[in-house]
């Protein structure tokens, strides 16, 4: 193989292995590629009354965050400014792992999500979006006559 002509370090190999294992476990990825490793990282949960979205988006100005809900699709977009100085002969960047630049993440919400009652809150770099479910879709106990 060509790969063996250019031996890579062990950590890079482990990284590749980890990605391969992850891909083989994600059996049915969404068409929007809700893949891991994007910015911001997202957790989604639900209660009978609401859908809760947690986006781990540190270092943003909430005023520049763009959260949209269009036909059951929630999108979170914005831009993260670079904190690092422009390198010159006096500065050296040793590690650069943090994301900077424009980002957009899109999440398909369940059908009963109500686009008219959405609340978003940004605290400690965590964006929490609560979308209420429609009344009609909530579970109801039916009285037996």
């Amino acid at each position: 193989m060509f790969g063996s002509l250019f031996p890579r370090d062990v950590l890079a190999e482990l990284d590749r292995l980890q990605r391969e294992v992850q891909t083989s476990f994600d059996l049915s990825p969404s068409i929007r590629g809700l893949g891991r490793g994007g910015f911001p990282a997202v957790n989604v949960g639900g209660t009978p009354q609401s859908v809760e979205v947690y986006a781990f988006a540190p270092g943003l100005d909430p005023a520049t965050l763009d959260v949209n809900l269009d036909r059951g699709v929630l999108s979170i977009a914005g831009e993260r400014k670079r904190d690092l100085p422009v390198p010159d002969e006096k500065t050296a960047i040793h590690i650069h792992e943090r994301f900077d630049g424009r980002f957009r993440r899109v999440i398909t919400l369940p059908e009963d999500a109500d686009p008219d009652s959405v609340a978003a809150q940004y605290r400690n770099g965590l964006l929490r979006i609560t979308v209420k479910r429609r009344q009609a879709a909530q579970p109801r106990r039916i009285e037996i006559q």
Binding site: F56, G59, A92, I93, H96, R98, F99, N124, L126
Partner: peptide, 22 residues
């Protein structure tokens, strides 16, 4: 946490992303 580390002539600055931490 992902970090950025930058060194200049007087010291080192480290940035770390820790969303959700107060």
């Amino acid at each position: 946490p992902p970090v950025d580390v930058v060194e200049d002539s007087t010291g080192i600055t480290l940035f770390a992303d820790m969303p959700g931490v107060s």
